[in-house]
Measured scan of single mutants.
Amino acid sequence: MTEYKLVVVGAGGVGKSALTIQLIQNHFVDEYDPTIEDSYRKQVVIDGETCLLDILDTAGQEEYSAMRDQYMRTGEGFLCVFAINNTKSFEDIHHYREQIKRVKDSEDVPMVLVGNKCDLPSRTVDTKQAQDLARSYGIPFIETSAKTRQGVDDAFYTLVREIRKHKEKMSKDGKKKKKKSKTKCVIM
């Protein structure tokens, strides 16, 4: 069974824990209790493949930012979460993405942009803004509501699919490099 290491990042209060708990335990946590770091595991079937999701729910508070490099190193894919009623959390996505790329030393890291709290009427981040940002990053965008469960499975499952595509691409690139290195030079 394939294991996928997913990391949920975003500013404090955007609903990272609520999304994760909704996926794992099928219930909505409405009281806000700032996370330092929590880890969850769940076995699911995605596109006919049974897999184990190892999900790291991270601290959004700035005082825990020193811990970010460590979990970013171990993560295979990242859910970059903002709240649709919090423009600052949307603007912060850029910083999370840049930090992930720096730590992973790669421009090509599996990510999904997630606009959470889409059940709320007080939207300050337009869907088109988020779609445009995701398009500019070359990553999928999904709106979710941890409260109603809308888009929750889709967000995590899409990230797994992005990781699969990335692994497939990397193995193809690896095979191309191996083929090239088999060419021999004969000096007579």
Rank of each mutant, 00 (worst) to 15 (best):
L79F: 06
K179N: 04
V44R: 02
E3G: 04
K175I: 11
R102H: 12
K128G: 10
P110N: 05
D126E: 10
K5L: 03
G115F: 12
I24V: 13
K117I: 14
F141L: 06
A134L: 11
R135C: 10
A66H: 06
R123T: 12
I100R: 04
K182M: 11
E107M: 14
E63R: 00
V114K: 04
I100Y: 10
K128R: 10
L159D: 01
V81R: 01
V45Y: 02
I93F: 13
K128I: 10
N86L: 02
G10C: 01
I84G: 14
Q150E: 04
K5P: 15
Q99H: 14
Y4F: 10
F90S: 10
V112L: 10
K101Q: 08
K167V: 11
C80H: 10
V45K: 04
S106K: 14
N116F: 03
E98W: 01
I55P: 00
R164G: 07
I187M: 15
E63N: 03
K16Q: 12
A130H: 07
K16N: 14
V125W: 11
E162N: 13
I24N: 07
L120S: 12
L19K: 10
A11I: 07
T2E: 10
Y32S: 01
D154W: 07
L79Y: 15
V8W: 02
V81A: 10
R164I: 13
D153Q: 07
S65R: 02
D132A: 08
T20S: 13
Y96N: 03
D69A: 05
Q131V: 10
L159N: 04
D153R: 03
I46D: 06
V29L: 10
S17W: 00
L23M: 06
I84W: 13
D108M: 13
K167D: 10
Y137Q: 06
A83D: 15
K176Y: 12
K178I: 11
S136V: 10
G13R: 06
D132E: 08
D126T: 09
Q22L: 02
M111Y: 02
S17L: 02
L53Q: 08
T127D: 12
Y40K: 01
P34Q: 00
I21A: 08
K104A: 14
V14A: 11
S39T: 02
S106T: 14
I100D: 03
V7K: 00
R73L: 06
K175N: 04
C51P: 05
F28N: 00
D54F: 01
N116I: 07
G115D: 07
L113I: 13
R73M: 09
P34C: 01
K172T: 14
K172C: 12
E91G: 07
L53A: 05
R164S: 06
F90L: 06
D132H: 11
D54K: 00
C80G: 04
G174S: 10
R164D: 06
E37L: 00
C80Y: 14
A11N: 08
E107G: 11
E63G: 04
R68N: 15
V14P: 02
Y4C: 06
K178R: 11
H166T: 12
T158V: 10
V14E: 13
N86V: 04
T124N: 10
K117A: 14
T2Y: 11
L52Y: 05
F156A: 10
Y96W: 03
A66E: 04
I46M: 07
A59R: 00
V125P: 09
G13E: 15
A59G: 14
M170I: 04
Y137W: 08
K172G: 06
Y32A: 00
I139M: 07
D57N: 00
K88L: 12
A18L: 00
A66W: 04
S39M: 08
P121A: 11
I21G: 05
I84Y: 15
S17I: 05
T74D: 07
Q61I: 14
A83W: 01
V8Q: 13
M72S: 15
Q131R: 13
K184R: 08
S136T: 04
V103L: 05
N116V: 15
G13K: 08
H27A: 08
V7L: 04
K128S: 10
A59W: 05
Y137P: 15
G174W: 14
V109S: 08
Y32R: 00
V112W: 01
K16E: 04
I100G: 01
K176Q: 07
M188R: 15
Y96R: 02
L56A: 01
F78H: 14
R41G: 04
L19W: 03
D47H: 07
S136N: 08
I55G: 00
S145C: 04
I46E: 09
K176F: 07
Q61N: 04
C80V: 13
D47L: 03
V103S: 05
Y40E: 02
R73T: 10
H27E: 06
S106C: 14
T74V: 15
C51R: 03
S181D: 15
Q70T: 00
T124C: 11
I163T: 14
E168R: 11
E62T: 07
R123A: 12
V109R: 04
F90N: 07
S106Q: 14
R102C: 13
S181P: 14
P110L: 04
T2D: 13
G48E: 10
K178E: 09
L53E: 05
D54G: 01
L6P: 02
A134F: 06
I100L: 15
M111W: 13
G15E: 08
R73Y: 10
L23A: 12
Y40A: 02
G48T: 11
D30L: 08
Q22C: 03
E49L: 03
I84V: 12
L23T: 15
V81I: 11
R135S: 10
Y137I: 11
T158A: 12
N26C: 15
D173P: 09
A11M: 10
K177C: 12
D153H: 04
E98P: 02
T20F: 04
T183I: 05
K177M: 07
M170T: 05
E37P: 02
Q22M: 05
G48Q: 12
I21P: 00
V9T: 04
F156Y: 14
T74P: 15
Q129K: 14
F82P: 03
V81T: 10
K42N: 06
Q22V: 01
K172E: 09
D57L: 00
C185H: 15
L19T: 11
